[in-house]
Amino acid sequence: DEDSERELEKLRKNNASKEEIKEVLKRLGFSEDEAKKLAEKAG
């Protein structure tokens, strides 16, 4: 959803580590696997 998109955008701009991105995604309700895949894509 839009909030998670914004959250990811912010992380990308701040050069967050894949680990940080994954944690945020998991907080947003993604499964471990989904979060890992998305973090890879974002990283």
Rank of each mutant, 00 (worst) to 15 (best):
L11R: 00
K13T: 07
I21R: 00
K22A: 14
K36A: 14
E19N: 05
E40M: 06
N14L: 09
K26D: 07
K18D: 08
E34Q: 08
K22E: 15
A16C: 15
L28I: 02
K13L: 11
V24R: 05
V24C: 14
V24T: 09
D33F: 07
N15S: 05
L28M: 09
R27A: 13
E23P: 00
E9D: 09
E23T: 03
A16M: 11
E32A: 05
A42M: 15
A42N: 13
L25P: 01
E2C: 14
I21T: 01
A35L: 04
L28F: 06
R27C: 15
K18L: 14
A35R: 00
N15K: 09
E5I: 12
G29F: 00
V24Y: 14
E19M: 04
E32G: 02
K18Q: 12
V24I: 09
E40Y: 05
K37V: 11
R27T: 10
V24M: 11
R6D: 10
N15Q: 09
R27P: 04
R6L: 09
E7P: 01
A39H: 01
K26T: 08
L28K: 03
N14G: 08
D1S: 13
K22Q: 12
F30N: 01
E2W: 13
E5P: 04
K36M: 13
K26F: 02
L25I: 01
K37P: 02
E9G: 06
E19W: 07
L28Y: 05
S4G: 12
L11S: 02
S4K: 09
G43V: 15
E9P: 00
K22S: 08
K36I: 13
E34F: 07
L38S: 02
E19G: 04
E2D: 11
K37Y: 12
D3Y: 13
E2L: 13
L28T: 00
N15W: 05
G29P: 03
G43R: 04
N15V: 03
S31I: 02
V24D: 02
A35H: 01
K13E: 08
L8G: 01
K26Q: 10
F30D: 01
K18S: 10
R27S: 13
F30L: 07
F30I: 03
L11A: 04
L11K: 01
S4N: 10
L8I: 11
R12I: 15
G29T: 01
I21Q: 02
V24W: 14
A39P: 01
L38W: 12
K41Q: 14
A35K: 01
N15G: 14
E19F: 04
E2R: 12
E2H: 10
K41I: 13
E5V: 11
D33N: 05
E19D: 10
K37G: 08
K41T: 12
G43L: 13
I21A: 01
K22D: 06
E20I: 07
K22Y: 15
E7W: 14
K36P: 02
I21L: 07
L8T: 02
R12Y: 14
E23H: 04
A16H: 06
E2N: 11
E20W: 10
F30S: 00
S17K: 05
E20Y: 08
L11W: 02
K10W: 12
R6N: 09
V24N: 02
L28R: 01
E32N: 03
E9L: 06
D33E: 14
I21K: 00
A39W: 05
E2F: 14
S17N: 05
S31H: 03
I21S: 00
K13H: 09
R12H: 10
D3Q: 09
E2V: 13
K18M: 14
E23C: 12
E32Q: 03
A16K: 05
E5G: 07
K26M: 15
K10F: 12
E9R: 07
A42R: 07
L25S: 01
F30A: 03
A35C: 15
E23F: 00
E19Q: 10
L25A: 03
F30Q: 00
E32V: 02
K36V: 11
K13Q: 11
G43F: 15
E2Y: 13
E2K: 13
E9Y: 02
A39E: 03
N14C: 15
S31M: 05
A35W: 06
A16F: 07
L25F: 04
L38D: 01
K37I: 12
R27N: 12
D3F: 13
K13N: 10
K13P: 04
G43Q: 10
L25G: 00
D1P: 11
D33Y: 08
K10Y: 12
D1R: 14
L38Q: 05
D33H: 05
